[in-house]
Design a binder for these strands. Structure first.
Lengths: 124, 124
DNA sequence: CCGCATCCTGCACGATACTG
DNA sequence: CAGTATCGTGCAGGATGCGG
C-alpha cells in the first residue's frame, strides 16, 4: 500500500541546516567555489558584486563551521587566505545545479501564474 | 575543455523565486501537499503543528500566486476550501525529496564539523 | 471552518569606519 | 589583503483578537 512512500518528514534539524545552506548568499558562494574549486576572499567579492563584505564574512564562517568549505591560510605576510570547497560541500553541487536548472526551466510558468493571480486580484 | 560546464549563473530572479519556495514554511506545505495531493486548511495546520495561522495563510497565498498550488472552494456554507498541488508544484517534489535526503544523509557530517569548529574556537 | 487586521519583537542585512 | 566593530533599519514572523 501507500505507506507514505519514503516519508521525508521535515524535522527542526533539517530546516535549520537548509536555512544555513540555502540562504540569501550561501548558494552564490557555494556555486562559485564548486565551479572554481578555490577562491580568495576578494575574488569572491568580485565574483558576487552585490554582496557586502560583512555578509561575505559571515556566510563564509557559517559554511566553514558546517564543514562545507575549508579556510586555508596561504601566507602570513602578506596575509593571504583561500577558501576551498570541501568534499561534503562538493556533494551539494549537483543538488544546487538541479535547483537552478529547475528555476530556469519553470520561471516562465511562474511569471505567467503571477500575472494571472495579480490580474484576478485586481478585478476586485 | 572546462567551458565552465553549464554555467549555472544565479540571477536575481533565481534568488527571488527560490526565496519564495524554500523559505521557512513553504517546504513543509509543499511536502505535505505532494504526499497527500490535497488538504484542507486546518488539516495542514494539524500536519504542521508549529506553524502559525498567519504564516500558513501567507505561505499558501504565495505558493498559489506562484502557481505551485490551487485553491479550490468546495462549498460556501459552511465554508470549505481545499488546497491541491498543481502540476508545476508537483515537479518540485523530487527536488524537495532530494534536498531532504541530502540533509538526512549528511547531518552527521555537519554535526561533527560543527563540534570541531566550535572546539577549535573555544581554545582561544 | 477559514481566514483578515494589528501590534510587537528579533534579527538579518546594509552602510560605514577602522585594523594588522 | 582580509577581515572586526558599530550603528541603523526593514520586515519576516509570532501572539492575539475579531469576523463571515
Amino acid at each position: 500500500m501507500q505507506e507514505t512512500e519514503n516519508a521525508p518528514v521535515i524535522t527542526g534539524d533539517h530546516r535549520e541546516l537548509l536555512d544555513q545552506l540555502l540562504d540569501k548568499w550561501s548558494l552564490h558562494v557555494l556555486d562559485q567555489l564548486c565551479e572554481q574549486g578555490a577562491l580568495r576572499f576578494n575574488e569572491l567579492r568580485r565574483a558576487i558584486p552585490t554582496i557586502t563584505q560583512k555578509s561575505l564574512t559571515s556566510t563564509l564562517r557559517r559554511l566553514e563551521r558546517n564543514g562545507m568549505i575549508d579556510r586555508v591560510v596561504l601566507s602570513d605576510r602578506p596575509v593571504a587566505v583561500e577558501y576551498r570547497i570541501a568534499p561534503v560541500g562538493h556533494s551539494l553541487q549537483e543538488l544546487i545545479d538541479a535547483l537552478l536548472r529547475w528555476t530556469t526551466t519553470h520561471l516562465p510558468d511562474v511569471r505567467l501564474a503571477r500575472e494571472r493571480f495579480d490580474a484576478e486580484f485586481e478585478e476586485k
